[in-house]
Simulated scan of single mutants.
Amino acid sequence: MGRLRVHNFTISLDGFGTGEGQAPGAPFGHAGERLHDWMFATRYWHEMVGGDEGSVGADHAFAAMHGRGIGAEIMGAGKFGPPGWQDDPGYKGAWGSNPPFHTPVFVLTHRPRPSIEMEGGTTFHFLDASPAQTLERAREAAGGLDVRLGGGVSVIRDFLAEGLVDLMHVVQIPILLGRGVRLWDGLESLEEAYAIEAVSTPSGVTHLTFTARTR
């Protein structure tokens, strides 16, 4: 059975995974793109957008683990699109005609709609289901490969609260957001369920890897 993995999920020093005021053109609210500056500097990111520059150190190595062995993705409504996208029957996500997932993607929403098949192997499926039910569907679609949990913050928190996440890579960066949506709220004593390793890099970020203890 494939694992459920989180990769490259970035939070501020005060634990916010997104800022306040999400809107079209501002998917991370007042945080802007600051949460992901560390990744934009890596060779991994430059290769994703068709370039050959960027750093090849530890940040690159962690970032590049994002797509390895993934057969399906789960995401929340807030990652699929800005507030109000459910009112647009023609909306197909924030990534254009060829999204970067190239797998089945299960979008959690209280307003499901028919599946959307995109270029490059991505098909969006819309579910109003519990975390456990959604993971079961995603694992069936993944064909034995792992499932990636893409966010946003509240979705990852819900799956953690139910003990469903097998591996989580969180990147803590040296900024303070002060407001937004925090990852750790309601997850007291999470460390009891996970072995945690921390690696700090010259860019000033800390990579935290959570590996589920034997259940």
Results as ranks from 00 to 15, higher is better:
W95Q: 11
M65Y: 01
A63S: 14
G54P: 03
G93M: 12
P82V: 01
A94I: 10
T103I: 01
H66P: 02
D59K: 05
V56M: 02
A94S: 13
H66S: 08
G81K: 07
H66Q: 12
G76Q: 08
H66L: 06
D59F: 03
G54H: 02
A58K: 06
G84M: 10
D59H: 04
A94C: 04
H102K: 03
F62I: 11
G90R: 06
D87N: 13
P99L: 04
A61I: 06
W85Y: 07
G69R: 12
S97I: 10
W95A: 07
A64F: 11
P82S: 12
G76A: 07
A77E: 10
A61V: 12
S55M: 00
W85K: 07
D87C: 02
G54M: 01
D87K: 12
N98T: 15
P104V: 02
G90I: 03
A64S: 15
G90M: 03
W85A: 09
M65S: 14
D87Q: 14
M65F: 02
G96W: 09
A94H: 04
Y91Q: 09
P100F: 02
P82Q: 01
G71L: 10
G76R: 09
M75Q: 13
G57K: 02
G71F: 06
A63N: 12
A64V: 15
H60N: 15
R68E: 15
F62G: 05
G84K: 07
F101Q: 02
P104A: 01
P100A: 04
G69A: 10
